[in-house]
Design a protein around this nucleic acid. Structure first.
Length: 888
DNA sequence: GGGGGAAGGATTC
DNA sequence: TCACGGAATCCTTCCCCC
């Protein structure tokens, strides 16, 4: 074999040279085009990196060839037997009964732009930017200009090229029109992108056989075109000169009942509706249909008849590169083995089975037999979500952190829009030499907020910055991805707040948990505000794949004992308030407008407030969420109306320090009251805390963390709640509303510092989706619980006012949980005998009752917690405690 | 040894 | 004039932990 070093320019051509595997790109002067491409690219960092990758592929091929040389005849024979067995199995399962169609819009983006801007019709044009083109029209393709080519190279190939910027909104709208047509032929069609889809028209064809001609006749709709039928018909020839087109005199088209006719009708209707043409492939499976749709592109279609011979005839001479999934690298590897067309795949299958992985050679075998999927599965779930950005070189750390945060912000928005939470945060970096690195971290809990994602991404970035220190990290791209999505079940933190527990206990699969308002309203409700439809509206999240249908219905929920008990207690509380001074309804009135984190307080969260009034606000001080000033500022804009609305309503709170009832119009006033109560203890601690904060801030700027800082905060935190509260109020946002937090609070920083040190132990439920709960207290403080253990307690339960024995905040949280719910517990104990809860001997594997299945599908059991982070035993949560009991 | 996370790569539009 | 994307999925390999 020729050594890679001697291949020189020819070798790199396979990477940077023109890829003419696209319609409208035949018969080009490839040598001339490649010369221009090489001259433009050569010497660039991109080119150098492509050379490097090319060398790697060559080395891979060399290794493969060396291995091939060592394969014995015996191995081949054995492999051959295995191949034949599998081939026989595949033959037996071959299905030819379905009629699968792949429809692909012709030069979609370019065609849309040309349609909307007729002066582009006669010009070579492409859609995209000088950096990258998304597609080009057929005029431009004659110059070698194609999708995935940088605009500046395209300009070298075709100086007259017009580059039109992308307009996705427009393409989406057109795509929607096209999909409406698809739906008439297969309601369950599978869109692959804006411009292509798979359809199974088997059922449609069966019905079609009985259709009268009138149902298969379609008028040529002149009104739908701006310039009438002539202009409509003139569009296709401009786009695609050789395209077949109907006669301009024709007023209607009658279509037959065959698959070809049905697909022709579909394309006709698409063209009538959008003035754009589509190509289609008709075959017994998806793989073949996809290849077929390219066969007569543009504005054409091709069918493989549903019999084995027709399929095998088609496959025989088909270049492997035409098959979806075989790209330039695989093509090159196969070429090294003398395999260029699919029939050669079959001939060398035994050798391929020895050289490639099982998955890969099975795939090759299927291709060689013309076998593919015959079931169009539309409902596959999203597995990841990401955002990335390319930019001019960026080498300054704080700019990189800032960008990282921006990306996290964008990603969080996207996640929240789809109601997703994921456990794995991946940071993608591309340096100025085009070398790509990804770094991932799997968290214990699923996250979706900017702060949570940033907490992880920032650490990954920091590690990379530190790694090449003192040299700067010279980046040209950064991206953040979230994966390992969890089901709605799993989105709940392991230790739920008691209120969270009470809300979800009835239906763990429901993402829309019965809120307090719902529970109360079920009682017949003397509290009309809780039935306010707007509450429900705000509670409900958009329907998503994890959301069971039942959760979207309005059917009454079957409440658990605890919910009933809780509702009863609420009722009682309400009755008391009726006589002694109401506050619940007032609070409820304003709650939907109160915001935490970076989204508005939802009904569930709002409902929690009633119960948690005594401590929640106080806790919120301690747990000023991590939401940045940015999020807060956006809130202050977004929720201006809401705030205004809420600010005039008198609310009643109980101060956790002096235990007096405080009536106030807004939470910030109440915060100020608490601050006053606490201020007497502040002075001696504050100086130290300020110092620490400064250190933290400085380190944040430098992207560094300092053990001394962490230690200092840790030391302070046990006795410095007051300081924290005080500092909290100094932030620019807390002054306007206590529900708004300041990310510069010492405790926040403290958590962040600790989070960094502890490998990103997540701040559970710091998201906007969770209520500010006691769970939050525990989980957040949990991070610092260890050093606190060694100190004398300064904690006093805000409910029972008892000084605590320990400063362990988990225990403290537990205590508060219990205190708050004594009544419920009492009722519970009366109803159910106690069980052996809190079994400290529980084994690790028993802590994760979820199955360790292989399936990554949503809806299946969630994966076990990552091994590198210690999971909290779910057995030790109050949730599990109740669950266990309720089963008895 | 198997399962699964991490990292890199291939592929698609 | 400079200048090679963004998003998603699947696969492979390596390595660690149970």
């Amino acid at each position: 074999m020729e050594p890679s070093s001697s291949r020189g320019q020819d070798s790199i051509l396979s990477r940077v040279a023109l890829n003419d595997n696209k319609a409208g790109m035949q018969d080009l002067d490839k040598d001339k085009i490649n010369k221009i491409i090489l001259e433009t690219s050569k010497g660039s960092r991109f080119y150098d990196n492509e050379l490097k990758k090319e060398r790697q592929v060559n080395q891979r091929i060399e290794r493969m060839m060396r291995y091939k040389a060592k394969v014995t005849e015996q191995q081949i024979q054995k492999a051959q037997a295995e191949v034949e067995n599998l081939a026989a199995d595949l033959e037996r399962s071959r299905e030819l009964g379905r009629v699968i169609v792949h429809v692909d819009m012709d030069a979609f983006y370019a065609a849309v732009e040309m349609r909307d801007c007729p002066e582009l019709k006669d010009k070579p044009m492409a859609v995209g930017s000088m950096s990258m083109l998304s597609t080009s029209n057929y005029h431009a393709r004659r110059y070698g200009v194609r999708a995935a080519m940088p605009g500046f190279i395209a300009k070298k190939l075709c100086p007259d090229l017009v580059i039109v910027p992308l307009n996705f909104d427009k393409y989406r709208a057109v795509s929607e029109q096209v999909r409406e047509v698809f739906a008439d032929y297969d309601a369950h069609f599978l869109p692959m992108s804006l411009d292509e889809a798979y359809l199974d028209i088997t059922e449609h064809l069966e019905q079609r056989q009985h259709w009268p001609e009138s149902l298969r006749t379609h008028q040529i709709c002149e009104e739908k075109t701006t310039g009438g039928i002539n202009e409509l018909k003139s569009l296709s020839p401009v786009l695609f000169e050789d395209s077949p087109s109907s006669s301009p005199d024709q007023k209607a088209e009658v279509f037959g009942t065959s698959p070809e006719e049905a697909v022709r009708e579909m394309r006709f209707r698409i063209e009538q509706k959008t003035r754009l043409t589509a190509s289609a492939g008709i075959a017994p499976n998806m793989m073949l249909a996809k290849v077929c749709s390219d066969k007569n592109k543009p504005n054409g279609q091709y069918r493989i008849l549903p019999d084995r011979k027709a399929v095998m005839d088609f496959i025989q001479e088909l270049p492997v590169r035409k098959v979806s999934g075989i790209g330039k690298v695989t093509e090159k590897m196969l070429a090294a083995l003398g395999i260029v067309i699919c029939s050669q795949l079959r001939q060398q299958m035994a050798m391929l089975s020895l050289l490639f992985s099982e998955t890969t050679w099975h795939h090759f075998l299927q291709i060689s037999l013309g076998i593919g999927s015959t079931r169009i599965e539309r409902d596959s779930e999203r597995k990841s979500m990401s955002t990335e950005r390319t930019f001019a070189e960026m080498s300054i750390a704080h700019e990189q952190y800032s960008l990282c945060r921006e990306l996290c912000h964008d990603l969080a928005k996207d996640l929240q829009r789809e109601g997703l939470k994921g456990k794995t945060v991946t940071l993608k970096l591309k340096n100025v030499n085009f070398e790509v690195k990804t770094r991932a971290f799997t968290l214990q809990c699923a996250v979706c907020t900017e702060e949570e994602i940033f907490a992880a991404a920032k650490d990954l970035l920091k590690a990379e910055i530190d790694n090449i220190n003192p040299l700067p990290l010279r980046l040209r791209l950064m991206g953040v991805r979230i994966s390992s999505f969890v089901s709605m079940d799993d989105k709940q933190p392991q230790q739920k707040s008691i209120m969270g527990f009470l809300k979800i206990a009835s239906d763990s699969s429901s993402s829309v948990q019965p809120s307090k308002s719902e529970i109360v309203s079920e009682l017949g409700s003397q509290c009309p505000e809780t039935r306010n439809p707007s509450f429900i509206g705000e509670t409900s999240k958009p329907f998503n794949k994890w959301q069971t249908k039942s959760s979207c219905t309005t059917e009454p929920q079957q409440h658990t004992f605890f919910q009933k008990a809780y509702a009863k207690r609420l009722q009682k509380q309400y009755e008391e308030e009726e006589t002694s001074g109401p506050c619940t309804d007032k609070i409820l009135k304003c709650l939907p407008t109160v915001s935490t984190n970076n989204s508005a307080f939802t009904t569930d969260q709002a409902a929690d407030k009633t119960e948690e009034t005594q401590t929640c606000t106080w806790i919120r001080h301690l747990h000023t969420d991590e939401t940045s000033a940015k999020a807060d500022s956006s809130l202050s804009t977004a929720n201006t109306g809401a705030k205004t609305q809420s600010s005039n309503i008198l609310q009643c709170f109980t101060c956790p320090v002096c235990f007096n009832s405080i009536e106030t119009e807004n939470l910030s006033s109440f915060n100020q009251h608490i601050d006053k109560c606490l201020s007497s203890e502040l002075d001696n601690k504050r100086t130290s805390m300020d110092e620490c904060q400064d250190v933290c801030e400085e380190n944040k700027q430098l992207g560094k963390q300092d053990e001394s800082c962490i230690r200092k905060v840790t030391d302070l935190s046990s006795g410095s709640r007051n300081s924290l509260l005080e500092r909290n109020n100094e932030g620019p946002y807390t002054s306007s509303s206590s529900a708004h937090s300041d990310c510069s609070t010492p405790l926040f920083k403290h958590f962040k510092c600790m989070s960094e040190k502890r490998s990103l132990v997540p701040h559970e439920d710091m998201s906007d989706t969770g209520s500010v709960s006691f769970h939050q207290t525990a989980s957040s403080v949990e991070v610092i619980s260890e050093p606190l253990d060694r100190r004398v307690s300064t904690l006093t339960c805000p409910v029972c006012n008892q000084a605590q024995d320990s400063d362990d905040l988990i225990l403290f949280n537990h205590h508060v949980d219990m205190c708050l719910n004594q009544e419920v517990l009492l009722e519970f104990r009366e109803a159910v005998p106690p069980m052996a809860q809190f079994d400290s001997k529980v084994k690790d594997h028993e802590k994760y009752p979820t199955a360790r299945g292989k399936s990554k599908r949503q809806g299946s059991s969630p994966p076990p917690p990552p091994k590198k982070t210690k999971a909290i035993s779910t057995r030790h949560t109050i949730d599990q405690f109740f669950k266990g009991n309720s089963k008895q």
